[in-house]
Design a binder for these strands. Structure first.
Length: 217
DNA sequence: AAGTAGTACAACCGCACTGGT
DNA sequence: CACCAGTGCGGTTGTACTACT
């Protein structure tokens, strides 16, 4: 049995949003707030599916969005976060106020990828391109993922970013040279007094090779 | 000026996850 | 426990714009 479609496609608009549609969406959300995207289009008088409304609002219409070019600092932060998190665009966006996952994803694919390639760095692994190619060959024959070999069959839940749970995949697929052995511990263990944290630790990646504060030592 | 290639980004699609029943 | 609806995420596509020939 298949999942029912998210909307009645025969009666929905697709493609670029018009100014009038934007205005309708903005005024509806201002009046009623976000939530219940499925029923929103009908209530707002929009011939769009809820998904489309949500995307338009989150990626384009939200008042707290920072439009315009990325700064050099933002570039470096994205690269750093990507090396730690992989293609977890929503998590990366969470560390960049005013930026959306879609925006960062697009920016990565159009600008940063090229920038890293020009530096001779493989954008997927964040290793020098020669080394990354060699690692790829290894992976093709041994199915090894470098320093981190994940044996568990089922995903486990880890907590990072102030309480948001994410699932780790059963296979570690990104940044093979990074130790992403994330701390899984009862809440009591997380209530250690806070030292001043380095960048990696502030992300919940205490055992990362990038850790400079050695909080766990 | 016209045609073509490259780039940037908005939007769509499909799948996974979550919570309610 | 299974099922389902709603939502969120990541990958991909479509298209407008710009640069180049």
């Amino acid at each position: 049995m298949g999942r029912s479609p998210c909307c009645e496609k025969a009666h929905t608009n697709k493609g670029a949003w018009t100014k009038e549609e934007d205005d309708r969406l903005i005024s509806y959300i201002r009046a009623h707030g976000e939530g219940c995207w499925r029923s929103l289009p009908k209530a707002a008088g929009l011939l769009r599916c809820g998904k489309s409304c949500r995307l338009r609002w989150i990626n384009y219409l939200r008042p707290d969005l920072k439009r315009g070019n990325f700064t050099e600092e933002e570039d470096e932060l994205i690269i750093k976060l990507h090396s730690l998190l992989g293609n977890k665009w929503s998590l990366i966006a969470g560390r960049l106020p005013g930026r959306t996952d879609n925006e960062i994803k697009n920016y990565w694919n159009t600008h940063i990828r090229r920038k890293l390639l020009n530096r001779g760095i493989d954008p997927a692994s964040h290793r020098p391109i020669n080394e990354a190619a060699a690692a790829d060959q290894d992976a093709a024959t041994t199915i090894s993922f470098g320093a981190t070999v994940v044996k568990e069959e089922k995903p486990s839940t880890i907590e990072i970013f102030g309480g948001k749970d994410i699932k780790t995949p059963p296979v570690q697929e990104k940044c093979p040279d990074l130790n992403l052995e994330l701390r899984i511990s009862p809440p009591s263990a997380q209530n250690q007094p806070l030292k001043s944290l380095c960048f990696s630790c502030s992300l919940g990646l205490q055992n990362s090779k990038d850790c400079s504060c050695r909080i766990n030592v």
